[in-house]
């Protein structure tokens, strides 16, 4: 996951990360860096180990070996709920929201988690207007205006994906880890989501790590791309370098292109 810009600040770093499931090595000693304020994509065919790598980076799974550093600090064995408070947010490949709560409450809860009012048992939640304000602001960023009072389970699939993004964004993370945010989306919905990602990047203070298998999608928006294959890093670089890389062209674009689901 190294780019060619040594002057840039490293926000997330993996050192010799390894994950084994029984005899299967899903991620094999992966090292790399993610630079602050960039959009970094991890691509690869199904089974390349990208989701496992993603789960290691976001703290959902403990690695078999290796370390993860966030802004220079070792966070390898921290519980996931603490990661959020340090500025690491993640979204899920399978939509993971609060189905029976309203859109507003879904995001308001995430905003409330960042404050220090969650242990106030004897005050009414409506007294804490700032969380609701924050939630409405986030709703605007992800483009769910007008749907605030709707129960999350009644949203369309694309809207649920946006809500998922909103829940993560409400925590105001420095780095957003997105696991296939376009999974299950129709091709008309994808550009809308890319627009949201670009809107977030345009603020200039966020880093996005994107796991995708649609190569066409990441080419246009990524600053850096890491290509994974069989648990290892096959190639890294800017989209141009990746496109020009003979190894990627041969192994990935050529032989494996059909597996990618790219159109």
């Amino acid at each position: 996951m190294t780019g060619d810009s040594p002057e840039r600040e490293v926000i997330l770093e993996a050192r010799n990360l390894r994950k084994e499931f029984g005899g299967l090595v899903a991620v094999e000693d992966v090292s790399g860096k993610i630079y602050a304020h960039t959009l970094h994509s991890i691509i690869g065919p199904n089974g390349a180990g990208k989701t496992t790598l993603f789960n290691l980076l976001s703290g959902t799974m403990p690695p078999t070996r290796g370390q993860i550093f966030f802004k220079g600090k070792d966070i390898t064995h921290q519980p996931p709920y603490r990661m959020v408070h340090q500025g690491l947010g993640r979204s899920f490949q399978i939509t993971n929201i609060f189905p029976n709560l309203t859109v507003l409450e879904n995001i308001r809860l995430a905003a409330q988690a960042m404050g220090h009012d969650s242990f106030k048992l004897f005050q009414h939640a409506s007294r804490f207007q700032r969380y609701e304000d924050r939630a409405r602001e986030v709703i605007k960023v992800v483009g769910l205006q007008g749907l605030e009072p709707v129960l999350a389970r009644n949203l369309a699939h694309g809207q649920k994906r946006k809500l998922e993004l909103g829940i993560m964004f409400a925590g105001d993370p420095e780095i957003l880890l997105l696991d296939e945010p376009t999974a299950g989306m129709s091709s008309e919905q994808v550009p809308e989501l890319l627009e949201i990602l670009q809107r977030i990047m345009a603020r200039g203070d966020k880093t996005i790590v994107l796991v995708e298998h649609r190569m066409d999608m990441v080419m246009s928006i990524s600053d850096f791309i890491t290509v994974m294959h069989l648990g290892q890093i096959l190639a890294e670089g800017t989209p141009q370098e990746i496109a020009a890389n003979p190894l990627v062209q041969k192994a990935y674009l050529g032989a494996l292109y059909g597996d990618l689901g790219a159109t």
Binding site: Y81, L101, L109, A110, A113, S118, L121, H124, A125
Partner: peptide, 27 residues
């Protein structure tokens, strides 16, 4: 009052989706 408090809202969130509660930063 307790169920309507910020804490009560987290209770309800745990009922709805405990793993998500963890991922948005509550223990």
């Amino acid at each position: 009052r307790i169920v309507n408090s910020p804490t009560g809202r987290v209770f309800v969130a745990i009922r709805e989706n405990e793993s998500r509660v963890r991922m948005i930063g509550y223990n």
